[in-house]
Simulated scan of single mutants.
Amino acid sequence: GIYGIAHGQFDAVKGAIVIDKADVSKSSVKAELDVGSIHTAFDQRDSDLKGPDFFNAAEFPTISFESTKVEKVDDKTGKVTGNLTISGVSKE
């Protein structure tokens, strides 16, 4: 693309991680990003990313993740599976 590799962040993020130590499978992860808060240090790129050709913030103001499964890998590691929704499309 015309921008090459770009780094940025969403300045408005909220979420929750719930860990059930007794039964890790009952744990959960949720996150929501405000698309309008995207910041790449380049105003035109930010505007393009918010626009209809990319994230379409006017119609889909948030990106979300919600876990569907949490598994224990070892004493310090877990595996989280879930659905990521971007621009109204959800994928595992």
Rank of each mutant, 00 (worst) to 15 (best):
G15P: 01
A6R: 15
E71K: 12
E92M: 05
F55T: 12
S28K: 07
L84F: 09
S27I: 00
D46R: 08
T85Y: 05
S28P: 03
I86D: 04
K72Y: 03
V70W: 10
D53N: 13
L84Y: 07
D20S: 09
A16H: 06
Y3F: 07
E66G: 14
T81V: 06
K21Y: 09
F55K: 02
I38S: 03
K76D: 10
K91R: 14
G36V: 08
S67M: 09
E71Q: 13
S28A: 14
F10R: 08
E59S: 13
N56D: 15
N56G: 07
A58V: 11
V35F: 03
Y3H: 09
S28N: 03
V18M: 05
P61E: 02
H7T: 14
K30S: 15
G82F: 00
I63V: 15
D74N: 14
A16T: 11
S90F: 01
T62Y: 00
D20L: 09
K72A: 11
I86Y: 03
I63D: 14
V29C: 08
S25N: 13
K69D: 01
S64K: 15
I63W: 13
G78R: 05
S90P: 00
S67K: 10
S87I: 01
Q9W: 03
S90E: 08
S25M: 09
V80R: 05
L84H: 10
T40S: 14
I2W: 04
E32N: 02
K14E: 11
V24I: 15
N83L: 13
P52S: 15
V13M: 12
K26A: 07
G8T: 05
S90Y: 00
V73F: 06
V13A: 10
G36H: 05
A12W: 01
K91C: 02
I38L: 14
D43N: 13
A41P: 01
N56V: 07
D75F: 02
A22D: 09
D48M: 04
F54Y: 15
F10A: 04
S37P: 14
N83R: 02
K76A: 05
D34R: 03
T77H: 12
K30G: 09
D20I: 01
S28W: 02
H7F: 11
A58F: 01
K50A: 07
K72T: 04
L49V: 07
E66W: 00
K26N: 06
H39M: 04
G78I: 13
K21N: 15
V35A: 00
S64W: 03
D43L: 11
E59T: 14
D20P: 07
V80K: 06
K91E: 14
K21L: 11
G88E: 08
E92F: 02
S67Q: 12
S47M: 04
A22M: 06
A6L: 09
V89I: 14
S27Q: 07
G15W: 13
V89G: 00
T85C: 06
A58M: 02
D20W: 05
E66H: 12
S67N: 07
T68N: 03
D75K: 07
D48N: 15
K69N: 08
S47V: 08
F54I: 14
A22R: 03
D11L: 12
K30M: 09
A31F: 15
D20M: 05
I17S: 04
F65S: 09
H7W: 10
D23F: 10
N56E: 15
S47K: 12
I5Y: 05
T81N: 06
